[in-house]
């Protein structure tokens, strides 16, 4: 396993102007993303998670620290625009607002946009576009107008656009935040499938806890720094720390944690509703309430 992205001691401050003081968004963040992993980055509003995404995607240049993408140091003195361009061929980004990232009026034209920019031969683009649309399950919409799609479908088209460029790592910057529950499920299913079946490295930035439980690894941010890093089970069992960072926990964990605090003998690191029900049933059979 090699590191796709390796960030060390990164800091970033948004420069202020006359009316607004400068804001430090990232403080000494170090993060290493393994090839083929699925990492969720959690945090409440303004904790710096979107800034981190922009730094990882080389939209913002960090003030301090080093950023290596596929072994190439982007913060080195001799890093050129071409290096950034090459790194962007490998690391794609899907943004929050589905409307503001589609360029063309027809679905397949939009998916082709990135490939066209890379100068891929026309016949090759055709094949890649068809493959990418099949992967996200949008083949039947290839000739549809982009503005008539639902939010979830638009995000899937955006994902197809990234896939057609043959990128191995995709950063999702709150890509599910503006979607309805159905759209969110569509997009999350697609993301999970890409990670498991296609082996694509996923960095998913979100504030939905149940989305984070699908990841292999959860990174929690607060006040511009990383405060927790581990598997979902590890992270979500630290309920009081999460509460301190103004974050919720998954509903199942919240319920079990409440029971545990009331003296029940239950595990709290369970995210599946059925499994949670079974755990409570088991506890009841064991005599449930510890105090009785």
């Amino acid at each position: 396993m090699s590191a796709v992205i390796k960030a060390e001691h990164i800091s970033y401050t948004y420069p202020g102007d006359e009316d607004t003081p400068p804001v430090q968004a990232l403080r000494d963040v170090s993060l290493e993303i393994e090839e083929g992993s699925f990492t969720a980055i959690l945090g409440h509003n303004g904790c710096g998670k979107s800034t981190l995404a922009k730094v990882l995607c080389m939209i913002l240049e960090p003030d301090e620290g080093t950023l290596e993408v596929y072994g190439r140091d982007m913060t080195a003195e001799d890093a050129t625009d071409e290096d950034v361009f090459n790194a962007r061929r490998n690391v794609g980004m899907v943004f929050q607002n589905p409307d503001n990232q589609l360029v063309a009026t027809i679905v397949e034209e939009d998916v082709a946009f990135g490939c066209e920019n890379l100068g891929v031969a026309p016949a090759d683009i055709r094949r890649r576009v068809d493959e990418a649309l099949a992967t996200v399950g949008m083949t039947e919409y290839a000739r549809h107008a982009t503005h008539r799609l639902s939010g979830g479908q638009k995000q899937r088209v955006a994902i197809a656009g990234v896939l057609a460029m043959r990128r191995r790592c995709i950063i999702f910057d709150e890509s599910t935040a503006m979607l309805d529950p159905k759209g969110r499920r569509e997009v999350m299913d697609t993301i999970c499938r890409l990670n498991r079946e296609e082996g694509i490295t996923v960095i998913h930035i979100t504030h939905y806890m149940n989305e984070a439980t699908l990841a292999d690894r959860v990174v929690v941010m607060s006040e511009g720094g990383i405060i927790m890093d581990g598997t979902p089970r590890e992270v979500f069992s630290r309920v009081s720390e999460l509460r301190a960072a103004e974050l919720d926990v998954p509903q199942t964990t919240e319920l079990l944690w409440g029971l545990k605090n009331a003296g029940w003998d239950v595990a709290v690191d369970i995210f599946d509703a059925d499994e949670c029900a079974r755990e409570i049933a088991r506890a009841l059979e064991r005599g449930g309430h510890g105090n009785t």
């Binding site: 995607c57 939209i59 361009f85 962007r88 061929r89 794609g92 980004m93 943004f95 607002n97 503001n100 990232q101 360029v103 397949e108 034209e109 082709a112 946009f113 990135g114 490939c115 066209e116 920019n117 890379l118 100068g119 891929v120 031969a121 026309p122 683009i125 055709r126 576009v129 656009g161 990234v162 460029m165």
Partner: peptide
């Protein structure tokens, strides 16, 4: 936002660009 998204998709202007539909 669109400019940002286009930049992330390697858009650098018309030079060296190909088209899917010829």
């Amino acid at each position: 936002e669109l400019a940002l998204a286009m930049e992330c998709r390697c858009y650098t202007g018309g030079e060296g660009r190909t088209r899917m539909n010829v």
